[in-house]
């Protein structure tokens, strides 16, 4: 298993977020985490990244505890923060040079291949780019890192339909070999539908379901993933 979470219980103050949450993700799978606002999607991402210590339970990424990942394991995990956040004081070339020295499997050509599709110069600062362009820089850096596991928090956030499509297609191409594992969340379920093998639907405090996306779709013939999600979790 690439991701294993056992008996995760977490509270913010006295408010219960989850109790005894269990899930795992196999190698080569793309898992989509769906849930309404406030169900704790970002909390799970933070626990997986090692930036939140749950009250109880533990999570392992590539066999290591998430809050004690070794440098070698970190190099195998690609992280996309909500809003495609990057070090925006760098320009396009500087940021590639910066990251390239950290990651042993760095593939510069993957970054530049993606950047060629954008109308940007190598000296353009990231903070002067549109959200869509920044998303491509962030994705290009992830591809260049060549990680075994990608954790993408709300990858559609702030993107127009064109950039969403570009992001999804680039990601599909990158994961086509079946060797990469992806854990992602998004507010736009249509985008996830094009990508995911498995899905987890979160409700307040618990996992409502965790199953292969195909099985879920077959159980609800003629319905989109979005319709199934609304049916299972209620409109509001």
């Amino acid at each position: 298993m690439v991701i294993e979470c056992e008996n995760i219980t977490h509270y913010y103050g006295n408010r219960l977020i989850y109790k005894n949450l269990n899930f795992s993700v196999e190698k080569g799978k793309i898992l989509g985490l769906l849930g309404k606002n406030g169900t704790g999607k970002t909390t799970i991402i933070n626990i997986l990244n090692g930036y939140l210590k749950p009250r109880e339970g533990n999570c392992r990424l590539l066999g290591e505890e998430t809050n004690r990942l070794s440098p070698d394991t970190k190099a195998r995990i690609g992280l996309l923060l909500e809003g495609h956040i990057q070090h925006s004081y760098f320009n396009v070339r500087q940021i590639e040079q910066y990251y390239s020295r950290f990651f042993p499997r760095w593939q510069s050509n993957e970054y530049w291949r993606l950047l060629e599709k954008l109308q940007v110069t190598k000296t353009q600062k990231i903070n002067s780019m549109s959200c869509g362009q920044r998303s491509q820089v962030a994705l290009g850096l992830l591809f260049a890192q060549n990680p075994d596991l990608l954790i993408l928090d709300d990858f559609s956030m702030g993107l127009d339909p064109g950039y969403r499509r570009l992001f999804v297609e680039s990601l599909k191409e990158f994961t086509a070999s079946g060797e990469k594992t992806v854990f992602l969340t998004s507010h736009i379920i249509q985008d996830m539908e094009m990508l995911i093998d498995d899905c987890i639907i979160l409700d307040y405090g618990k996992i409502l379901l965790h199953m292969p996306a195909d099985t879920l779709m077959n159980q609800h013939p003629g319905k989109t993933l979005e319709n199934i999600f609304i049916e299972l979790t209620g409109k509001y």
């Binding site: 990244n49 930036y51 440098p71 070698d72 970190k74 190099a75 995990i77 992280l79 923060l81 809003g83 956040i85 990057q86 070090h87 925006s88 004081y89 950290f102 990651f103």
Partner: peptide, 18 residues
């Protein structure tokens, strides 16, 4: 401040170094 803004510190701490 740039590290704390939008929690970029997560990216820095995720670098493959102790």
């Amino acid at each position: 401040i740039p590290e704390i803004q939008q929690k970029r510190l997560k990216l820095t701490l995720h670098l493959p170094m102790p």
